[in-house]
Design a protein around this nucleic acid. Sequence first.
RNA 1: GGUCCAGUGGUGGAAUGGUAUACACGCAACACUUAAAAUGUUGUGCCCUCAAGGCAUGCGGGUUCGAGUCCCGCCUGGACCACCA
Length: 835
Amino acid sequence: MSIYSHKKIEKKWQKYWEEHELFRARDDSPKPKLYTLIEFPYPSGEGLHVGHPRPYTAMDIISRKKRMDGYNVLYPIGWDAFGLPTENYAIKTGQPPAKVTKKNIANFTRQIKSLGISFDWSREVNTTDPAYYKWTQWIFLQLFKHGLAYKSKIAINWCINCKIGLANEEVVGGVCERCGGPVEKRLKDQWMLAITKYADKLLEGLKEVNYIPQAQTQQENWIGRSEGAEIDFKIQGSGRNIRVFTTRPDTLFGATYMVLAPEHELVGQLSESISNLKDVEEYIAQAKRKSDLERTELQKEKTGVELCDVRAINPANNEEIPVWVADYVLGGYGTGAIMAVPAHDERDWGFAKKYGLKIYPVVLPYGGSTTFGNSMVQVRKEVVNKIIDVQPFIREGFNIESKFLNGLKTAEAKIKMIQWLEKEKIGACKIQYKLRDWVFSRQRYWGEPIPLVFCEACAKFHKGESVGEQTNPGWIPLPESELPLKLPAVKKYEPTDTGESPLSAMSKWVNTKCPRCGGAARRETDTMPNWAGSSWYFLRYIDPRNDKEFASMDALKQWMPVDWYNGGMEHTVLHLLYSRFWNRFLFDIGAVPAREPYKKRTSHGMILAKGGEKMSKSKGNVVNPDDMVEQYGADTLRTYIMFMGPFDQAVEWDPQSLVGVHRFLERVWTTSERVSNEAPCPKNIIRQEHQSIKKVGEEIEVMRFNTAVAHLMTFSNTLYKLEKVPRGAYKTLLVLLSPFAPHVCEELWAMLGHKSSITEEKWPAFDSALLEEETFELVIQVNGKIRDKYIVSFGITEEALRAEVLKRPKVEAVLNGAKPQQFRYISGKLVSIVA
RNA sequence: GGUCCAGUGGUGGAAUGGUAUACACGCAACACUUAAAAUGUUGUGCCCUCAAGGCAUGCGGGUUCGAGUCCCGCCUGGACCACCA
C-alpha cells in the first residue's frame, strides 16, 4: 500500500501550475470572462492566520470550477500594505517601513503559495509601490480638480494613543477602532472627500447589484437617506432664525417647543437675551465633557436646560414656544436643531414628560372610515389624549387642529405643508443623509503623500485652473509628469508632538517650487488613509503594468465589473462604500466603463479559536496555517476549512476534526490501487456518480461547501468499499474533488496515466435520466404517526398501492377494522392515512 | 432600546412542509499486532434487560393528513446599529 505523502506532491504541482501558467487570465481569450475577487490582505508581521484561507479557498474552488466550466477567470492577488502596524513596528525598531513591508510580503507570498490557491500571480499589485500609488495620487487629483476634495477646519476625532485623526467611521462605540483607546475632539485642518455629493448615486446603484441582504441594508443605513423639510422659526425680538430639519412637516402645528444641540452656534449669539446664561453655559460645558460613548449610553434619562426669555414663533399658528438646549439633539445631524412635537415623537415625548412641556396632538389614527364628523373627531381626540398620556402616537394618520391640513392623510399633509412653506418662504423640501464627508488626511508617514503644494502667491493672485483650485485657494496640484510623488526617507517615523506628520520635519522636502508660478511653496505633509489604495485595486489588477494610465479602457471593458466579490462583514460598510464611490466618480469622468464595480458580494464567517473566542496574538490562541500544511498538507487544510460549517457563519477551530478530512483524502488515495478498466459499473454507482455531479456543482455555486464535501465523502466511501473500482466513476470523483484538494487530485490523475493537468478537464455534466432510482422506501403514516415502511417500485399505481398498504399487518392492527377516512399518497415518498 | 440572524445527539453540523439526527469528530466493542499506533468491522439521541412501544429539534400555543421547517407569544445567545428629528 502506497502512502499519501503531501510533502512530495504539493510542491511539485504548485511548480507545475506556475510553469504552465495554468491560472493566467488571458486578455485575448474568446471564452466568456469571470472576474472573481477576494479582499487583498494586509501583510502583517505575524504572517498568515487560519482565517485568511477561508475566503481564499472558497473563491479558489469557485474559480477552479468555473475554469472547468469554460470561463476565462481572473482571480488576482495583491497587498494592501500601507498601514499603522507596519509604521508602529518601524517606530519601535527603527527599520524603514518599506523594508519591513517587503519582508512581510515575501513571507505572505510563501504562505499563500503553499496553499495552492489558483491566483494569477502575474498581476500582483502592491499599494506601497510607487508605480501603484502614482495612480492613487492621480485619482486623488482628479477628485480635487472636480471639486470633490476640500480642506476644512473641523472637529475631528483624535485618538490620544495613535496620535492620529480618525474618520467618524473608525470610531466604534466612542473608542478608537484600532487600539480601543479614548478619542477626543480636536480642531484640525483636514482634507475631506465630498462623498455626500454621491449619496444618491451610491444609493441608486444598490438597485443594480446583487449583494447579500446584510451588506445591502448596511449600505442603505449608512447612507441614511430621509426626506423631509427644513423650516425656519423666528426668534422673538432678535431678528434671528432657528432652522430645523424634520421628516414630519405635517406635524408642525403640534410643535410645542424647540431644542438646540449644545454645540449650536445660536446659543452664543443669543447669550445676551438668555436670563439664565450661567445655567446654560454650565450645561453645555457638561455635555462637552461627556464622550460620545457617555452621551449615547445615557440614553434613558434625557437632560436639558431652557433658554429662559428666549421664545420662538411656530410659523404655522404664530404661537410662542420655549427654546431648550439638550444633548439628545446631535450637532452633526440635520441642522443641529429640532422642532419638538412631543405628541408624535418618542424622544420629544419623553423629554416633554420629564420637564412638563405641552403635548398637543395633531394626528389621529385612521379609523374604519376616512370621513369623520366633528363630534367623532372630538370623541377620538379624547381617546388619543388618553393614549398620549402613556405614549406618543408616532405612526401615520390624519391631521386635526391643523387648519389647512385638517382631514388629510399624513402623506398628503406632508406635501401640502411643504407647498405652503415654500409659498410663504419659511421652509423647503429637503433630503437629509446620515452619511458624512470622508476625512482623507492622516498625520502619518506610512501612506501615500498627497500631491498638492500650497503657494501663497497663487492664493492671492491666481484664479485657479480647476474647481478644486478655486474652492481651495493657493492649493496647486502637481502636474502628472511629477507623479508619483515619492515618500522621502525620514529618520524618525513618529508623528510629531503637535500631531503633524513626520514629513513636516523635513524642510528640504517640504519647501519646494510652485508648479504654477514657480514661486516658493510648501508641500502638503499629511498622507492618505489606508482606504485610499484599496478603493481602486480591483481596477489595477486588470492592467497592472500600464505606466500610461491606471488601466486602459480596452482592458477595463473586457474585465469590469467584478463578477463576484467575497469579503468579511467588517468591510461591508466602509471599504465597499469608499470603493464604490471612487469607481462611480471614475465612471462619471469617463475613466471606467461600469457604473457599479461589484456585481455580486458575498461574505464569510470568522474562524474562532476553541471556546468561541477571537484569535489574537495577545491571547496566544492563533493557529498558524504553516503548521497545518506541514503536518497534514494544504489539501487537508483547504478541505477541512470548507467542511467545518456553513461558509457564512462563524466556526470554531477544532484540530481534532481535521483528521477526519485527512482520512478521507487518504481513502481517496488508496482507492486508486483498486481502479480497474474491466470493472463493470453497476447502475447504483452510475446513479450516485450523477447525483454527486449535480449536488457538488450546485452547492459550490451557492457556497454550500460543507455539504458539497459531505457528498464527496459519501461517493468516495461507496467506491472505497468496492473490490474493483470502475475507472470512470473514480475519474469523476477526482474531477469533482479537484477544486477542493487540487494537489492530490493532480497526482492521482497523473497516476491514472493522464498527460495533462486535471485543471484542464471539463466539469462533467449529469444526465437527469440517470439520477432517478427505481424503488423507494414507502413510509406509511396513520394519524400522523409512522407505522410501517417497505420498499416499492416507482412505477406502482396508487390503486395497487392502496390495496397493498391496507393489507399490511401493522396498518391493519392500527386501523382495527375501521375504514380509513382519508388516504393520501405523496408520490415517491409516503402514504398518509386518517382513520 | 431598535433591526437582523440563530437555538437540532457528547461535539461540528445535515434535512424543496413528507422516514429528524446525512457527513464527520468523539466514544465503545471486536479484528489485525508480542504490544502500541495506524487501519478495518460493528455499534452509538433518550426511556425500556430484549422486543414491542413511547419520548425527543429552547419554551408555550396555532395552522396542517403531516411542522426542525409556516404563523402568534415568550426565553436564551450572537451580529449590526445606537437619541438620525
